[in-house]
Design a protein around this nucleic acid. Structure first.
Lengths: 256, 256
DNA sequence: CTTCCGGCTTGATCTTCATCAATCGCCTCG
DNA sequence: CGAGGCGATTGATGAAGATCAAGCCGGAAG
């Protein structure tokens, strides 16, 4: 594992606050692996032995039932995944698959559990990361139960625009069929929904999107801070927990 | 606060492992309150100052958007709620409302955060509880994205039957319109779905349900351990985390 | 260059679900 | 006892979304 990768992991909110001892213990049994696109890292129901950290590439978390599949999340670096299963030493509820070639760090789950009870700061960080993931899922569930497909798409585009810097034009970060699954619709209906958004000032050509009249789109989308996390993605704000604390005043951020 | 209540809280997985000091600190600033039915405890977007522990009654967690409401969870004693917001010192994403008269213990959020960094065992317990809640939400999300309304209802009934002891007859624990919202459908469609399940050996009279041909119903419902948590509810298995670890062998349970 | 393939789009149709409206049963309160 | 109210049910209708079936387009391989 390269030093630069070690540093990236050490800087994660999950590990930033833990002791050097803790971090050494964890990284001792760790290994970094490069997977090609389309590799299944983990199948739902499998025993989970490692905490995964995505350092480069894209990973899809998916659920399956009755020969149907759905994308539950799309992860970009730097993200950890299946932390919940590791904490509880339980089987994974989702499958994980690389969407493109990805560099993934694997940390021993047993070591994580052991170290948690010895290093309170680390245990707190784990609790915070879990809380952030939990809140992300609450947002997703509300998004699906309260909004229709067109509204979900509109809000997705608004969020992407803000996360990519706020310009009128940006790029869809994933294949449309994957995006459709994430948004809970079929690829056909995603196509139609995109076409329908033309009336609201959304121009899509291949993967590139331009929002010409943001105000009009917002009137349709009705974004809501209790559902949509519009926080831009920066190097400073990488963990799920940090991203959930966002619009807090400084004093509260420091206090916690 | 009565001694018997203190004991119930102390016995929760969240507090069972923490030191006496920790527990004393937490219970010092705690107070128990009785709320009538229909009381809003917490509105989405509110600052969250307390961790709530439902000791008696029923609480509904709900989400709102664009004048629509949906219930995200229905809690029965003994359950904690809005732990994630407390851990991150963030605003609540959901509203909480009593469905019936409820006894609720309120613990200072600031004290919880403080105590976490001092007592690793407690921080671990918080992380585990959060992980359990997270997995519950993953199950819910898969349930909604992968199954249709009739299938969700069928699985709900199967789960209820098992949780209430496995008899052919049992009782719906909530009003049907609340149940409809939890299942993500309108009351009208819940009625129709219930009627449709008559063909699968489900008899419903008011709140009482009888499943005459479980095998037939299961063929429709296709329950899946990666979505449905069929674990019975006992005094021994009260926390969200415990309930997620269920089908594990003894040695794993002890190790963690 | 041409062919092939996979992802995307488009149209037609069907299923599912929401909505609107009316009724019924039950309980409460005057 | 009767009136009103609320939840549940049932029916009719419409909208949203899934499915099926072609076609389109662009990149990769031959």
């Amino acid at each position: 594992m390269r030093d630069v990768d070690v540093e990236r992991v050490r800087a994660l909110p999950l590990f930033r606050g833990c002791s050097n001892d803790t971090f050494r213990t964890l990284s001792a049994g760790a290994f970094l692996q490069r997977f090609p696109a389309g590799t299944t890292l983990l199948l739902g129901g499998d025993q989970v032995d490692f905490l995964y950290v995505l350092l480069d590439g894209t990973v899809e978390l998916e659920g399956t039932w009755n020969d149907k599949e759905t994308t539950l999340a799309l992860l970009r670096p730097v993200s950890t995944f299946i932390l919940a299963a590791v904490v509880l030493d339980a089987d994974g509820l989702m499958s994980a698959r690389t969407v493109e070639r990805s560099d993934i760090l694997m940390l021993s789950g047993a070591a994580i559990r052991r170290v948690m009870s010895e290093d309170a700061a680390f245990a707190v960080a784990v609790a915070q990361e879990m809380a952030g993931c939990y809140r992300g899922l609450v947002r997703t569930l509300k998004n699906h139960k309260l909004r229709g497909g067109l509204e979900r798409l509109a809000n997705y585009l608004i969020t992407q625009r803000l996360r990519q810097g706020g310009d009128a034009s940006f790029v869809l970060p994933h294949e449309k069929r994957v995006l459709a699954s994430l948004l809970g619709m079929t690829p056909e209906n995603l196509s139609r929904s995109i076409a329908a958004l033309a009336d609201y000032g959304v121009e899509v050509h291949g993967p590139s999107v331009t929002i010409t009249r943001p105000a009009v789109l917002e009137r349709l989308a009705k974004p809501d801070p209790l559902i949509d996390n519009h926080q831009p993605v920066t190097d400073e704000l990488t963990g799920k927990a940090q991203r959930e604390r966002w619009p807090l005043a400084d004093d509260r951020t420091r206090a916690a």
